[in-house]
């Protein structure tokens, strides 16, 4: 392996500092005793206690996770199927049109997606009496629409470089199309499906605009709650919650890394 030169290392340090200092500050201040997130007084774990005592905060965090999980799964199913359809060898009428329109939500401002969906739900409610009120489900629908395009692009990119001869060979040997799909395509695509899911999950967890249009009773998400904090002043409880989130994410990444290392070993041998 080549040693890195001093300039490269300096750039690297600055790059990492740029990326991670804000997060580091956030974590440090989670352990502060002061009531203001930006002022350090003394070490304390009171804000971690506060997170677990504050049922609004934990409920919002759980709602957000629930919405993110469901909508990421939905986006992977729909976006993935769309990717299969648009990369299929057999061409059909309107294929390129579908290809272009499916990524439209990426360039569409979220506020338009949110507002138009609100209008749609209101119109449907007037016509059929459903949905009676907005809630988790309407937010999920909004998030699937917004994130599907990203998943579609991720999976489609992998599918385009997919070696078709594998599929053909399996078919040749008598496998049914269903078997080919689950035994050949899905395992090969697993990584891009996972990254598409994670992308959709993050986008959904992060979203404020669409959610604030489509929420109803009992479905306050974490971003909405943090935003509404301004009235009483943001406390380091938010820092503590963010620290917990970062810890969980880091743990997942480490586990994924270890698992990948494990699965690679036999290949080397």
């Amino acid at each position: 392996m080549r040693r890195l030169s001093k300039t490269v290392i300096t750039f690297l340090i600055f790059g990492y500092a740029f990326l991670f200092t804000p997060i580091l500050f956030l974590i440090i201040n989670a352990f502060s005793a002061s009531e203001i997130p930006s002022i350090w007084t003394s070490f304390s774990l009171r804000w971690f206690e506060a997170v677990f005592e504050d049922s609004e905060l934990t409920r919002a965090a759980l709602t957000s996770l629930e919405i993110a999980c469901i909508s990421a799964t939905g986006a992977v199913i729909l976006g993935g199927l769309a990717a299969f359809a648009t990369t299929n060898t057999s061409s059909f009428k309107g294929k390129s049109f579908l290809n272009t329109t499916i990524i439209m939500p990426i360039v569409m401002p979220e506020i338009i997606v949110g507002f138009s969906l609100l209008m749609l739900f209101m119109a449907i409610e007037n016509a059929f009496g459903w949905p009676k009120e907005r809630g988790v489900m309407t937010v999920v629908i909004g998030h699937i629409i917004a994130t599907m395009a990203y998943v579609h692009i991720t999976i489609r990119a992998r599918l385009l470089s997919f070696d078709k001869s594998l599929e053909e060979a399996a078919l040749n040997l008598g496998a049914k199309p269903f078997t080919v799909f689950f035994k050949i395509k899905i395992p090969i695509l697993a990584r891009s499906i996972l990254s598409g899911w994670l992308l959709a999950f993050t986008l959904s967890l992060d979203d404020l605009v669409i959610a604030s249009f489509l929420t109803g009773p009992g479905s306050t998400t974490l971003p909405i709650l943090i935003f509404s904090n301004v009235r009483v002043g943001v406390t380091p409880a938010i820092n503590a919650l963010a620290t917990i989130f970062i810890l969980i994410v880091a743990l997942c990444l480490i586990i994924a890394f270890l698992m990948m290392k494990q699965s690679k070993k036999p290949e080397i041998n």
Partner: peptide
């Protein structure tokens, strides 16, 4: 059997 309350954060405490 619920009541749906919509308010500012932190005003009605737990």
């Amino acid at each position: 059997n619920t009541v749906n309350v919509y308010g500012w954060y932190g005003i009605l405490n737990n």
